[in-house]
Amino acid sequence: MNSELRRTLALGQELFNAVRLIKAGFGQIQNIGAGNDFYHLPLLTLASGFERFMKVTLCFRCLEENGSFPTKAIFPSGRRGHDLNLLLKKIRTECFLVDYINNVPVAQSDFEYLNSEGLLAFVSVLSDFGQAARYYNLDVIVGRQVQTDDPDAAWQRLETEILLARKDLMDEIEKNPASNRIRIEINNEVVARLERLARAIARLYTIGGIGSEAKRYLVYIGCFLHLRDAELGTKKYELSGRAL
């Protein structure tokens, strides 16, 4: 197998892995509730999935722009290689080209969303988790100075912000504090925000400017690409992330 073919196959496999990890993470978020507060699992899965999705997307962009696969210099080394905030910034600046934003109506909306606080707060928690926070408890155990917040607590604070912004859920807490609907609605809102991130990246593969090679893989990203606004947060995901 020659080097170019090997790299092409690896690129496709990495995209497939990314999509399955993200879908599994969504399923794991939907499974959080009474009797299951294992936030570490979806944080681990989603941080890895979105890191891979963004890196593969940037590889396709490089392939289109330069006519060759990128070198290892395309991504920072060490912890910064897991910095989702940095990767998302590169997606915005290198993939959301001016012609795309100006000529495709949904592109402007996607670009604005990728800069929105409602999304970036969640991306930042996942970014911290990927860089260091996944070892938060071990750092505490060995007396190392922790560099991030407890990731579970950070994620739960964002959930609380969703709750406080929803009058219907606050009213329901007063009437029925044990209502399972409250947890379901919060989980669905979290998934909807991250689905919208996945959809914005997926659109680059078909109507964006990341290249003809990327279009060969539309079947991998169709689960995100074809999501309508009304469907955000409504789909049920497999815990395994298996393809439907």
Rank of each mutant, 00 (worst) to 15 (best):
L84W: 02
L86H: 07
G209L: 07
A200F: 02
P177G: 08
N115H: 08
L21G: 08
G27Y: 04
V142M: 14
V140S: 09
L5R: 10
D150A: 06
T160S: 11
V56H: 08
W155I: 01
L120R: 11
E51G: 01
D128A: 11
L9M: 13
D229C: 02
L163S: 08
K72L: 11
Q30K: 02
I221S: 04
V142T: 13
P70S: 05
S116A: 07
Q145V: 14
L239S: 05
Y39R: 12
L244V: 08
E112K: 15
E213D: 11
T57V: 09
F224C: 07
S68V: 06
V125Q: 10
Y113R: 07
Q13M: 06
L163D: 06
F53H: 11
I201P: 05
Y100M: 04
P105Q: 04
K72I: 09
G222Q: 14
K55N: 05
L88T: 02
E117D: 11
L63R: 15
R144H: 05
D152V: 13
S116I: 01
Y136F: 13
D152N: 15
I207T: 15
S68C: 10
Y113D: 13
L88K: 01
L43C: 06
A230I: 14
L227Y: 02
G33R: 14
A47Y: 01
E112A: 12
I91T: 08
I182F: 03
D149W: 14
Y217P: 00
F26D: 00
F96Q: 12
F50G: 00
A24I: 02
N103R: 15
A178T: 05
L120H: 07
G241C: 11
A178P: 04
F50L: 03
Y136V: 02
A200I: 03
I91N: 03
R193I: 00
G25V: 03
H40A: 12
F38H: 11
R6E: 07
D168Y: 03
D110L: 05
L194C: 02
H40R: 13
A47V: 00
E51F: 00
A154M: 00
N187Q: 13
E231M: 12
A198W: 05
R79A: 08
E172D: 06
C223L: 04
D83H: 08
A154H: 01
S240Q: 04
L138I: 07
T45Q: 10
N85S: 12
V104G: 11
T148I: 00
F96T: 08
E14P: 02
F60H: 06
V190T: 02
N115G: 10
C223V: 03
P151Y: 05
R242V: 10
S109W: 06
E213R: 14
I182T: 10
K89V: 04
K72H: 09
L9G: 03
L88W: 01
N85M: 11
A133Q: 09
F16P: 08
G208C: 01
E231S: 15
N137K: 13
I207F: 02
N17Y: 06
A165D: 13
Y220L: 12
I101E: 04
A47H: 09
G130S: 06
F122W: 14
N188R: 15
